[in-house]
Amino acid sequence: MKQASIEDKLAVNKYTIDKDVHIKIDGKICKTCDKHYCLYACPAHCFTLSNGGITFSFEGCLECGSCRIVCPNRAVDWTLPRAGFGISYQYG
C-alpha cells in the first residue's frame, strides 16, 4: 500500500473551517524551547518548525487535545473550535 501523506489523510475528512483560530501559540516562548514536543504530539501535523520557531495552522486540527497537555512551557492556548466548526467525523 502506498504511503499516505498527512495531507492526503486530512483531505478526506470533513471540516467546517472557522475564520477564527481556536488554538494560539506564544511564538516567543516557542523560540526558546528546545523540546518541541508539539511537533510529535499533533497527529495532524498542525505544528511546523521554521527558523527555530513554531508555526501553527489550525485547519487540520482533530481536536484531540494532545498539544494542550504536552507543552512543557504552557505556550499553547487551547480552546475548542466554536460550536458548529472544526472536524465533523462521518465514521468515528
Binding site: K9, L10, V12, L62, C64, G65, Q90, Y91
Partner: peptide
C-alpha cells in the same frame, strides 16, 4: 481511505 481520526 475515507477518514483519519485521532483521540486521547
Amino acid at each position: 481511505l475515507v477518514e483519519y481520526s485521532a483521540h486521547l
